[in-house]
Design a protein around this nucleic acid. Structure first.
Length: 469
RNA sequence: GGUGGGUUGGCCGAGAGGCGAGGCAACGGAUUGCAAAUCCGUCUACACGGGUUCAAAUCCCGUACCCACCUCCA
């Protein structure tokens, strides 16, 4: 089985062809930790978490590197504004990002370096670019170092643009630049900026330009040539274009394949802080089970825009309840000892086809439909096999309710046991009432439980109950 | 001005020349003491206008609208 992915650089589906067979190196751009993550940010994490899980299931060893940009103009501005060190802002938001990984069941990257932790490597790379004639120190004495776009004829290859067709950046002060499209590798320290936000260099004190950290990190942790570079589609230009240019100009082949996830929109435009249409992960998770939020983010194809709405989120919650319901019922009947086994062929085919999760989910639903029929017959080998397969498929998407991660989210043991014995006592009363056809009493008990948030269903094997979230 | 992507049934959301995903909602039936859950069934669309083809949601041309990027951005 070969995974095919859509390569943004060549705009076609391509087979994954790892540099080192059996191993896949992935770099994806993390966050600039100037604020806590919103659900658009976390969509990217979920997408790459699914990619990792699928590759690992296919027997690949996966190394994922994602940067944390912990220094930039906005972080410095926030520190200033809040009257505390810039790094206090960065660390706080980095923790919020890690909390969001955890709450949505995303395994953290293998390595997650901070921009400020890779300054020497960046400086080495700048030296190389200077030597090769692809970079220059600004003539205005600012201490800025720029990449010379005109010196690199391939510039624009990733985003399929020609330098001459591009609009010149209107905001960037052109002072030290030879061409308005030249971008900063290194930014000289400006008056008023904290000393702690600068590092010594041959050109004076300064701090990293944004793009260079990714090139330096990818080279250090994945090698000069690696398999997949990912990130949000909004990073394709200029960020990824610039990364590609500087790495190649420094003599490194860089990423073999580029993978970009589409945005999550709210009110018709990209969720972003500057538009003000953001929904924080930490907030949404208070209203909706985290596993259902993950299902929502994972259910759409990663290259399709998700137009967020309360309705579509609510629908995802309902859709996931059907899946969760089957897993819970099947696990109860089979004694809860069925481990994930193998995904079905149709599921695998879908995932191999550019992570076609919607098609994979259609297959999952079909398997669950047969599983639901088996449920009527009580415990059976077929039921266990179906549950094992369903769990395997859910595990690939990171939404197996019986996995260690999500099971851990259930109420604490002691409380759960106390609740359970109370509910069972009431259900016993109800069963006695039903046995004597005293349905008024039976319904009263059920209503009381429902009022307390406990739902009761009668099955051929007796009543089952669950806490309504 | 340049570069990509999109417009599918009441809703969400796949597909990408013939065999018309899947889910949600709705309706009918089975099951149930009644429910719930489940199963069976019904409804069935491809922005608009041309064209190619035996056959187009799918290819081509044009039009409209939407999104992203060309400035920090997942």
């Amino acid at each position: 089985m070969t995974l095919r992915l859509y390569d943004t650089a060549t705009r076609q589906l391509r087979d994954l062809d790892p540099v080192v067979p059996g191993h896949v190196g992935i770099y994806h751009c993390g966050l600039t930790v100037q604020g806590p993550p919103h659900i658009g940010h976390i969509r990217k994490e979920v997408v790459f978490d699914v990619l990792r899980r699928w590759l690992e299931r296919g027997g690949h060893e996966v190394t994922i590197v994602a940067n944390v940009t912990d220094i930039d103009d906005k972080i410095l501005a926030k520190g200033e504004e809040q009257g505390r060190p810039w790094f206090a802002v960065a660390y706080e938001n980095e923790r919020a990002l890690h909390a969001a990984y955890e709450v949505l069941g995303c395994r953290p990257p293998t390595y997650e370096p901070r921009a400020t932790g890779i300054v020497p490597e960046m400086l080495e790379m700048i030296e190389t670019l200077l030597e090769r004639g692809h970079a220059y120190v600004a003539a205005d004495g600012s201490g800025d170092v720029y990449f010379d776009v005109r010196s690199w004829p391939a510039y624009g290859e990733l985003s399929n643009q020609r330098v001459d067709d591009m609009q010149a950046a209107p905001d960037a002060p052109p002072e030290g630049k030879r061409d308005p499209r030249d971008f900063a590798l290194w930014k000289g320290r400006k008056d008023g900026e904290p000393e702690s936000a600068s590092w010594p260099t041959p050109w004076g004190r300064g701090r990293p330009g944004w793009h260079l950290e990714c090139s330096a990190m990818a080279a250090k942790y994945l090698g000069h040539e690696f398999d997949i570079h990912g990130g949000g589609l909004d990073l394709r230009f200029p960020h990824h274009e610039n990364e590609l240019a500087q790495s190649r100009a420094a003599g490194q082949p860089f990423a073999r394949l580029w993978m970009h996830n589409a945005m999550l929109n709210l009110s018709g435009s990209k969720m972003s802080k500057s538009v003000g249409n953001t929904l924080m992960v930490s907030e949404v998770v208070k209203r909706v089970p985290a596993i259902a939020l993950r299902y929502y983010l994972v259910a759409a194809h990663y290259r399709s825009i998700i137009e967020y709405s309360e309705e579509s989120l609510a629908e995802a919650v309902t859709a996931f309840e059907r899946i969760d319901g089957f897993v819970a019922r099947a696990a109860e009947l089979s004694g809860g000892v069925v481990e994930p086994t193998e995904v079905t062929d149709a599921f695998a085919t879908a995932m191999d086809d550019d992570l076609a999760v919607p098609a994979a989910l259609a297959e999952l639903q079909a398997v669950i439909a047969t599983g639901n029929k088996l449920l009527a017959g009580g415990d059976s080998a077929e039921l266990r096999a179906t549950l094992g397969s369903v769990r395997a498929m859910l595990d690939v998407l990171g939404v197996d309710p019986l996995s260690e991660h999500w099971r851990g989210a259930a109420p604490a043991g002691g409380d759960r046991a106390a609740l359970g014995s109370l509910v069972l006592a009431l259900l016993e009363q109800r069963q006695q009432a039903r046995a004597t056809k005293d349905f008024a009493t039976a319904d009263l008990v059920r209503d009381q439980l429902a009022a307390a948030g406990v739902e009761v269903e009668d099955t051929p094997h007796g009543p089952r109950w669950s806490v309504k979230s």
